[in-house]
Design a protein around this nucleic acid. Sequence first.
DNA 1: CCTTTTCGTCAACAAGGTTGACCATTTATA
DNA 2: TATAAATGGTCAACCTTGTTGACGAAAAGG
Lengths: 155, 155
Amino acid sequence: MSERGKPVPLARLLLMSYRLLIDGMHQRLREEGWHDVRPAYGFVLLATRDRSTTSVELASLLGVTKQAASKILDPMDAAGYVRRSVDPEDARVKIVELAPRGWELLAAVECIYAELEAEWGAAIGVAAVELMRKHLTEIVLAANGGEFPAIRPSP
Amino acid sequence: MSERGKPVPLARLLLMSYRLLIDGMHQRLREEGWHDVRPAYGFVLLATRDRSTTSVELASLLGVTKQAASKILDPMDAAGYVRRSVDPEDARVKIVELAPRGWELLAAVECIYAELEAEWGAAIGVAAVELMRKHLTEIVLAANGGEFPAIRPSP
DNA sequence: CCTTTTCGTCAACAAGGTTGACCATTTATA
DNA sequence: TATAAATGGTCAACCTTGTTGACGAAAAGG
């Protein structure tokens, strides 16, 4: 590897590590029979987990345009992971919430994710994982005025 | 933020941090007058820095198909960042190397990158940055049989 | 010499992003 | 109260970067 002898850029390590988790996640999902899950779905699952949302709000949470949000929601709706309904209080608005299948998928995702993070704990120690979490949190918050930024599924 | 009170998934923190570096990189490049640099170019610059390569080898280094590699090289070639020439020893092969403008871009990239990493050192301490580098390296190598994997520009 | 493999390019399609446009609905203003 | 402005969601075109399949030229193998 041409990086031998030179420190590997941290950005590269961050991306490799992230990919490790995400690719591992999607592989395990496939092994469990989830064959139609796209990378972006995870972002939508997390955004709609704690409370229903709307298309345009989801766009804001994801840091993308409303068109992009709609574009992810379309196949998710078609596959039965989310439901969209007209808001009784504002006829322009579509309420977006997880459908039963979406809840099942979310449960599978969270279970696999916990396994993956536990594997990191086994590899470098739980304390090191928590320290990394602490440091990354500091960096991200410091750079975003004390808040977590919206994070796009794809650059 | 709905993540308040729950640990933010490490995957999310990794992605946020990575984006912080990469988005910061591209913003500063634009500020310096580099207006036509796409995210994928950085990967090609690093892959061709230490020695010239070939289209198909680049594909392998990037972990993408040869078609995808060619597709990134086309605009880079057109913009004068790389040069492609026929290999005198094998007429099928295109040698890919950085052109003068590519070297200038690489220099700008590396300079900005150093600034960005130094800012992390200022935020959490240089020792913490190095510790993170060490831990991430361990995780990545452990998961890839002791080697660094190819890393695609885009999932 | 013929078959198989390899390299790079062309083409079509996909995922997920952008901008612009449009219509319906709601809110704000005169 | 009527009109203007703002908002939500969808349609459309295009972009970046990925995939697969196909193809012709060149090289390697039998």
